[in-house]
């Protein structure tokens, strides 16, 4: 149904013949895509079309009803799901914070058994600055604004140096100047080889960031 890759290579994130439903309503079926190094795929469509569900299936936080997702030709199970999810990192639309400070939130993922490196404090400081987050890292995260929490969630994901980043409307609560900063950082990461899957309702952002677009339609029950 949808085919977003002309190449046959198995490198990068590949979804093959995915199908998912929400209750009796079919969200998508026969969906195939590929996101390689440095590519940015924008996923667009009306609310309820299944964009977030697609990202969750790609992150293997939920199972598609049909189809298969691989990274560099390997299943998530072969990596181990925690390791896979450190390489294919999903950032939800609503920025969820752990109890504690901004710094504790940024260091959160480096406490897990799947962590292979220590918390990169200097890189975190650089990203806070690059994304215009002029707040003390000792600030309690729950007291931050929605826009600040969105950027903390994005930095938390970027610190993992993901091979593929799955972003669900990452700039919906941000002003124009901050959106520019976020997009600049994403472009820099893409130049370094990171693949990006971006859900966005902003056509201008899609045209600025994406190298390809996948449009999901709304299906009847």
């Amino acid at each position: 149904m949808y085919m977003c890759a002309a190449r046959e290579a198995s490198a990068g994130l590949v979804a093959d013949d995915l199908a998912a439903s929400a209750g009796p309503r079919r969200l998508f079926h026969g969906l195939s895509l590929r996101v390689g190094a440095g590519e940015a795929l924008a996923v667009v469509g009306a609310s309820g079309a299944g964009k977030s569900t697609l990202l969750r299936c790609l992150a293997r936080l939920q199972e598609p009803e049909h189809g298969r997702v691989t990274l560099d030709g390997r299943s998530a199970e072969s990596f181990g799901l925690p390791t896979y999810r450190r390489r294919v990192v999903y950032v939800a639309q609503r920025a969820v914070m752990q109890a504690g400070t901004i710094e504790e939130n940024l260091a959160f993922a480096f406490r897990f058994a799947s962590a292979t490196s220590a918390y990169p404090r200097e890189e975190a400081a650089r990203l806070l600055d690059a994304l215009g987050l002029a707040v003390d890292p000792a600030t309690v995260a729950a007291r931050c604004s929605e826009g600040e929490r969105q950027r903390v969630a994005l930095i938390r994901a970027l610190l993992l140096q993901p091979q593929i980043l799955l972003l669900d409307e990452p700039t919906s609560g941000l002003d124009g100047a901050t959106v520019t900063r976020v997009e600049a950082e994403l472009r820099a990461r893409q130049s370094g080889g990171m693949g990006l899957v971006l859900v966005s309702h902003d056509p201008l952002q899609v045209s600025r960031v994406a190298t390809r677009t996948l449009s999901l339609g709304v299906h009847d029950a």
Partner: peptide
């Protein structure tokens, strides 16, 4: 569930 899935999406095991 949002908080738990956030941890899972950053590489936590179900137990963590």
């Amino acid at each position: 569930r949002d908080r738990i899935e956030m941890a899972l999406s950053l590489g936590a095991t179900a137990w963590e």
